[in-house]
Design a protein around this nucleic acid. Structure first.
Lengths: 234, 234
DNA sequence: CGTGTGATTGACGCCTGTCAACGTCTGTGG
DNA sequence: CCACAGACGTTGACAGGCGTCAATCACACG
């Protein structure tokens, strides 16, 4: 089980904005040779906060949540990782232990690339190095933005922000259904609040006709109004 | 006015952990030649959120606060920059506009280095590139940690955390006086709370004999106990 | 000495976290 | 097929943390 067709980097280049887009064919071949890919199932832990890691992951499909464990074991979700993203590279670069845990929330096909490959590519291919730098820098920008939201917005505004972020990241289908399934608790762990607060605010949003709820499915009916709520006092 | 002795990179290498520590003498010479250094006075704005920048800064002395402007113009301080740190490089790398504002809070001597130098060094010196990557990655780790604090700790715990962070970053003198002067409002803008809350909690800490207050000076009397408060439920 | 900025204190009330109880759904085992 | 357990979702009650407003004080500076 867990046997899948191994994604060929060459093909991934056509499917999404791969971190390997600037490799020459020889370099790409070495990645293809050294990587090991497999299917990870929902609930699998990719790496654990505090552990050292020996490589990073390139995501071909699926969704992974990255979280830190805070007060009384409460998860704080930092970001989501999906197709085309890379995972676990930060701690390699900073030469620290992992500062977060990565857990699969939708079955994912991922390729593991040993850290030696990362560093040898960085050294031999300046465009690849720049690509890594750029991704890190962008992630830093986003993290800083989240920090301000967390510090200054109330729960209602943050929940609206999160819904918008999820809609942008995972998109809506033709029925405007948000293409990611999260428990109420997970939503709370993004927003940084209690599960009950999320539930109450979701029903408020539903009453105000901004969203609709079908079990765990969230239908986004009025993105503009959500945008307005999220930037209320901005 | 504002004329000072221009810091020589060669000397800075001996004074602190310079980002240029891995340059060869030729590269160091080109930085020395291209940079422009001067004294910035308290209150000076180095760059402004939303603007494009054309280079980055290497700090020789002084303190700069980096903040984002949030709800109703409220500053949220992201980090402090001091001797040996670099400033404004993130947006160069990500090729975005500045996502924050940098303002001098203690007279600072800083060198401006054009972005072309940054990129040419990154391309020609892999160790320099790694150094930049590493600094970005570490900053990202810190930002993520702050995010969790902000999401999960209450104001009391956050204020304790901030005092500890300040003590570590700017150190205490022989009388245990914190070596940075901040207004109550600035403290509130780090903690992410109202000025009045900071004032009230500071007096509580003082009553509990954890700190002492002499005007704007903060004397840290019991770092261990502050540590305990900041990680109360962890 | 007036003016302005920052610091402090008190009053007040809303937001939001916590606790408890209950409803819903799914899968499992008898 | 039914009973049950367990996870998740929902709702209500309640209290306390913390933000807001207003008044006053302290201090520096032109």
């Amino acid at each position: 089980m867990n046997k899948i067709e191994m994604p060929q980097c060459e093909l991934c280049l056509h499917h999404f904005n791969s971190v390997f887009k600037n490799l020459n064919s020889e370099q790409l071949e070495s990645v293809n040779f050294e990587k090991s890919c497999r299917l990870y199932k929902k609930g699998d832990i990719i790496y654990h906060e505090g552990n050292r890691t020996s490589g990073f992951y390139c995501i071909s499909s699926g969704i992974i949540k990255v979280f830190k464990t805070g007060i009384e074991g409460r998860e704080q979700i930092i970001r989501f990782v999906k197709k085309g993203d890379i995972l676990g590279y930060r701690s390699l670069i900073s030469k620290e232990a992992a500062c977060s845990t990565a857990k699969v929330i939708e079955d994912a096909v991922m390729c593991f690339i040993p850290s030696e490959i990362l560093f040898s590519l960085v050294k031999s291919n300046i465009d690849f190095a720049m690509e890594i730098m750029q991704r890190t820098a962008k992630e830093l920008g986003e993290s800083n933005k989240l920090l301000v939201d967390m510090a200054q917005k109330n729960v209602r505004e943050r929940l609206a922000s999160v819904l918008i972020m999820l809609a942008e990241t995972f998109e809506l289908d033709d029925n405007k259904i948000l293409q990611i399934n999260l428990t109420r608790e997970e939503l709370a762990n993004i927003v940084g609040t209690a599960t009950e607060s999320v539930i109450r605010l979701l029903s408020e949003f539903k009453q105000d006709d901004l969203i609709d709820l079908k079990g765990r499915k969230i239908i986004i009916k009025n993105l503009d109004e959500l945008e307005e709520i999220s930037t209320m006092y901005l």
